[in-house]
Amino acid sequence: MTVIKTTNLTKRFGKFTALDGVDLGVTEGEIYGFIGPNGAGKSTTIRVLLGILKATEGEVKIFGKDAWKDAVEIHKRIAYVPGDVNLWPNLTGGEVIDLFINLRGGNHKNRREELIEKFDLDPTKKCRTYSKGNRQKVALIAAFSSDTDLYILDEPTSGLDPLMENVFQECVMDVKREGKSVLLSSHILSEVEKLCDRVGIIRQGKMIETGSLDQLRHLTRTNFRVETKQPITNLGELEGVHGIEENSQTLSFQVDTEDLDNVIKHISPFGIVKLESTPPTLEDLFMRYYERKDPSSDTGVGGAL
């Protein structure tokens, strides 16, 4: 079942087009990684999903309901953590957590204490004394204390230390085990790689890629390090070989996934001494998509675009 579904979502602020026909789909029980550079439209998309901004065009459905008209009804089943958590300076963290849990309407609080301990937060301190990380903890504790069906997390870990990031990841895995859905916008690619079932990449208001990590990897290049008895010749003339670097005896290069077979056939006669291959990291993917100045002019690897 689809939890979030946007069709041709477009949002304009005056003349500026922030979102240009975004199609996003999150299915029940999955963790969806939403990545893109600053200003790409991640937060705008999320704020449209929450009914805080009104879509200029297109359809936005959450749990099959309209995100704008049925916002309150939808929000009873959503937990949201913004990237920049601004809190009221004269309330304590504990007060804010209680307020947040209560405003969702009729949720149980039994996980509150457990999470406060896990995240190592002092709930008696006023919010003005909290660092960015601690303010994020307040929002995360409130979110994970509530029993909801969908978690919308907008760069929730940008201020957390590695230890707390682990706690966060455990929390996300816990809710996934309970069959809940998560939309995770993030800059920390290792986190997305670890947690997410599917990934969508947004750039300049357009979704440029979406799919499982395996699918996305398929669309890119594998890294090779090869040592052979005889020097490999004519490698650069082969289709799909990129970035050749020679380092004493070792050759490093990348190969397009669809040309793997040809390349291996070409190099094996030279007598392989050592062969290392590493799958592309999300970072490679990310960099490749972002570096392109104009997505439409690039036909992409393997016709990805």
């Binding site: 929450l50 805080i52 309150v72 949201y80 913004p82 920049d84 601004n86 809190l87 947040f100």
Partner: peptide, 14 residues
């Protein structure tokens, strides 16, 4: 203006 309204509207508050 201090973007604290999102906390409320993002929850079940109309």
């Amino acid at each position: 203006k201090k973007s604290r309204i999102d906390h409320l509207l993002g929850r079940a508050v109309s």
